[in-house]
Simulated assay, not measured.
Amino acid sequence: MTPFIKKAFSVVCHQNPERTIIIDGHSMMVCARCSGIYAGVLIASLAVVFYGKIFLKSNLPFYLLSAPIAIDWLLVLLGIKEFSKITAAFTGFLFGSIIFLYFYSSLNKKNRNK
């Protein structure tokens, strides 16, 4: 089952072993940045379940929480800074959480218009 799951994740993640979080000697199936994105989606979805509906009316939160991942990725790509698993996971977390909240808001907006 693990090779199938690893192959499925390879479609969305480079799975570079040097950029993968290792827990108790086991590598995650995705890199630190993607792990952060998935964690952000999970935590944001739990927040919606436990705290009720969250609606985003402005694009400002999207820009503010998407900027760190874009800046970090660009600085690493250009060789200005070294890759950090912690920074990648944190910026991924911010991005994953805001993407989920906008997705959730757009679904609810469509349902309200029916």
Rank of each mutant, 00 (worst) to 15 (best):
M1L: 11
M1K: 13
M1R: 11
T2D: 06
T2A: 04
P3I: 05
F4C: 01
F4A: 03
I5V: 14
A8L: 15
F9S: 03
F9Y: 08
F9P: 04
S10L: 04
S10H: 11
V11W: 11
H14R: 10
Q15T: 05
Q15S: 12
N16Q: 12
T20I: 11
I22H: 10
I23A: 14
D24H: 13
D24A: 15
G25A: 03
H26C: 12
H26N: 12
S27V: 03
V30Y: 02
V30P: 09
C31V: 05
C31Q: 07
S35P: 11
S35K: 09
Y38R: 08
A39P: 06
G40P: 10
L42H: 06
I43W: 04
I43L: 13
I54H: 02
F55H: 03
L56N: 03
N59K: 08
L60E: 05
L60H: 05
P61A: 01
Y63D: 00
S66G: 09
A67T: 15
A67E: 00
I69W: 02
I69K: 00
I71V: 15
D72Y: 07
D72V: 06
L74A: 08
L74V: 07
L74F: 07
L77I: 09
L78I: 09
G79T: 03
I80H: 09
K81I: 15
F83Y: 13
S84C: 01
K85R: 15
I86G: 06
I86F: 13
I86Y: 13
T87M: 12
T87L: 14
T87G: 05
A88M: 13
T91V: 14
T91I: 08
G92D: 03
G92T: 08
F93I: 12
F95N: 09
F95A: 09
G96V: 14
S97K: 09
S97R: 07
I98D: 06
I99D: 01
I99Y: 10
F100N: 10
F100T: 08
F103W: 14
F103I: 04
Y104V: 02
S105E: 03
S105Q: 06
S106K: 15
K109Y: 10
K110N: 07
R112C: 06
R112F: 07
R112D: 13
N113G: 06
N113R: 11
N113S: 12
K114F: 04
